[in-house]
């Protein structure tokens, strides 16, 4: 311990007593980093909870435009790649270089597969015009190519939708209206008795369920822009969908870089049963990316 620097293996930093101490420190550091990742996504999960609590119908409505099959395949791909990653760590510990290499490459291919399917899904959404934000209401660019668009059906703008809802006697929250002009503020003052911040989650009222139920059998569903039954602010679902899956996608890309780097180092024979810290830590990262997707998949694709 005193004569450091002489019998140090090349991977050992000068400030460590031995490889074990360095490994444990690296592992603790990685877990802390994963904690920050969880909190980073945690912000969005809380956002999801708030928005879902306030407007559950948005999520029931929006999820029918997602392809559950593609999502399920992606989930399987990611879980498999997590398995191969775990096997890679074991083979590194066992000093089996060839098997380590195979598993790392398989993991990398799994990541590529996930991103390819994600690309297919995103492209489909963009073609259908299912964008986050106000661009949602422009409808698909190529209407003939759209699965959902029916030529001849009237387009329901945000304003006409509000008129329709008011006509049905539905109370339209003021937040659904374009930046409120003063005149409207006065016209709607009878709503003033409600303290808005005190409103809890609206919950899935029976009326909302009834309204949406018959539509579950109808496929393909109408394009939201042509749908008089769509909830106001239907685009909000795609806001949170693209933000969460997008941020996750970025993490997958980072994971691919990490795994690629591990492949290069494994090819150079850097890892063995004495030193496999990078494989272990890279594996931890890959598992958290996988884990986050395992939450995202049911939240967006499965539960209505």
């Amino acid at each position: 311990m005193d004569d450091h620097g002489h019998d140090h293996p090349p991977h050992l930093g000068h400030h460590w007593a031995d490889s074990q101490q360095q490994f444990e420190a690296g592992k603790l550091g990685m877990w802390l980093f994963l904690a920050t990742e969880v909190l980073l996504f945690g912000g969005l999960f809380v956002g999801y909870a708030v928005w879902r609590g306030n407007d559950p119908e948005l999520f029931q409505y929006g999820s029918q435009y997602l392809d559950t099959w593609l999502g399920a395949v992606n989930t399987a791909v990611l879980i498999l790649s997590s398995l191969t990653m775990a096997m890679a760590v074991t083979y590194a510990q066992l000093n089996k270089q060839r098997a380590l290499m195979v598993c790392l490459v398989l993991t990398f291919l799994g990541a590529c597969g996930f991103m390819t399917i994600k690309y297919i899904e995103y492209t489909d959404k963009f073609q259908e015009g299912l964008f986050p934000g106000a661009a949602f209401y422009d409808g698909p660019k190529d209407r003939a190519a759209s699965k959902y668009w029916v030529e001849g059906r009237p387009v329901i703008t945000r304003e006409t939708l509000l008129e329709l809802k008011r006509g049905l006697g539905e109370r339209v929250p003021e937040s659904d209206i374009r930046r409120p002009e003063r005149t409207r503020a006065i016209a709607q003052a009878e709503m003033s008795a409600i303290e808005p911040a005190a409103i809890g989650p609206r919950g899935m009222g029976e009326d909302i369920r009834r309204e949406l139920r018959p539509r579950a059998d109808e496929y393909p569903p109408p394009h939201p822009v042509q749908d008089p039954n769509r909830p106001t602010n239907a685009h909000m679902f795609f806001n949170i969908y693209f933000m969460m899956t997008g941020l996750h996608g970025i993490h997958v890309l980072v994971g691919m870089i990490v795994i690629g780097w591990l492949i290069v180092r494994a090819a150079k024979g850097h890892f063995n049963s004495e030193y496999y810290t990078p494989v272990d830590l890279g594996g931890l990262y890959w598992h958290i990316v996988d884990l986050i997707w395992i939450f995202l998949f049911p939240l967006f694709y499965l539960i209505h």
Binding site: V50, P132, G133, A134, S175, N233, H235, M236, N239
Partner: peptide
């Protein structure tokens, strides 16, 4: 992109 997360006009919540 103005997607309306915090914009009341698009269903968001500034608070």
């Amino acid at each position: 992109f103005g997607i309306g997360i915090f914009d009341p006009a698009l269903g968001g919540d500034p608070v």
